[in-house]
Simulated assay, not measured.
Amino acid sequence: MTFPMIVIVDDEELVRAALAMVLERNGYQTASFSSAKQALASLNDLGRIDAIITDLVMPVMDGVLFIKRLREIGVQSPIITLTGGARVGQHNMSIQAKEAGAAVTLQKPVDKKQLLSALENVFNL
């Protein structure tokens, strides 16, 4: 039996570690990256990707541009975005992320039950 592979992209190490811990304790495999560029460079090495969780606000390449690049190269995996929600323009980024192909946006700090529910929902779309 293979477990779903979830790619986590967030520039905050503690966020990546917390998400990976929750997901792995609930039967998922994870691969974590500190930047969108790092994740894009590693996609071919990962093989199957069942879902991607990405922060929206990151240096160099934000989550919206990351989603656009993923779709341009043919990645069709469901995408969940994360946002702190308090910064100016983040609501607009959530809208842009949805338009680019994100399935759902969750607020940080991410609630464990919300995260697992969001994953179940995107897998059932």
Rank of each mutant, 00 (worst) to 15 (best):
E72R: 09
E72V: 01
E72P: 00
E72F: 08
I73G: 05
I73M: 12
I73C: 09
I73Q: 15
G74W: 13
G74V: 08
G74H: 07
G74F: 12
V75D: 14
V75R: 03
V75I: 15
Q76W: 00
Q76H: 05
Q76F: 01
Q76E: 14
S77R: 06
S77M: 06
S77G: 09
P78K: 04
P78W: 02
I79C: 11
I79K: 04
I79V: 13
I80A: 12
T81Y: 00
T81K: 09
T81Q: 01
T81G: 07
T81N: 06
T81F: 00
T81D: 07
L82R: 02
L82E: 06
L82T: 07
L82Q: 04
T83H: 08
T83R: 04
T83G: 03
G84I: 04
G84P: 09
G85S: 11
G85E: 00
G85R: 02
G85I: 00
A86C: 12
A86T: 14
R87N: 11
R87L: 13
R87M: 15
R87F: 11
V88L: 03
V88G: 01
V88P: 15
V88R: 09
V88W: 01
V88I: 01
V88F: 09
V88E: 05
V88M: 01
G89E: 10
G89M: 10
G89W: 00
G89C: 04
G89R: 11
Q90K: 06
Q90T: 10
Q90I: 01
Q90D: 15
Q90R: 05
Q90M: 12
H91R: 15
N92W: 08
N92G: 13
N92Q: 14
N92L: 07
N92I: 03
M93Q: 15
M93I: 01
M93N: 09
M93F: 06
S94C: 13
S94Q: 11
I95H: 10
I95M: 04
I95P: 11
I95F: 02
I95E: 12
Q96V: 05
A97M: 06
A97D: 11
K98T: 12
E99W: 14
E99C: 06
A100Q: 12
G101D: 06
G101T: 10
G101R: 11
G101H: 11
G101N: 08
G101P: 13
A102C: 10
A102N: 06
A102I: 12
A102D: 13
A102G: 09
A103S: 15
A103H: 15
V104G: 09
V104E: 15
V104H: 02
V104N: 10
V104Q: 14
V104A: 03
V104S: 12
T105Q: 02
T105F: 07
T105C: 07
T105W: 05
L106N: 09
L106D: 10
L106Y: 06
L106V: 12
L106G: 10
Q107N: 10
Q107Y: 08
Q107L: 08
K108E: 03
K108A: 07
K108R: 11
P109H: 04
P109A: 02
P109I: 02
V110Y: 07
D111G: 01
K112P: 00
K112C: 07
K113G: 12
K113T: 13
K113M: 14
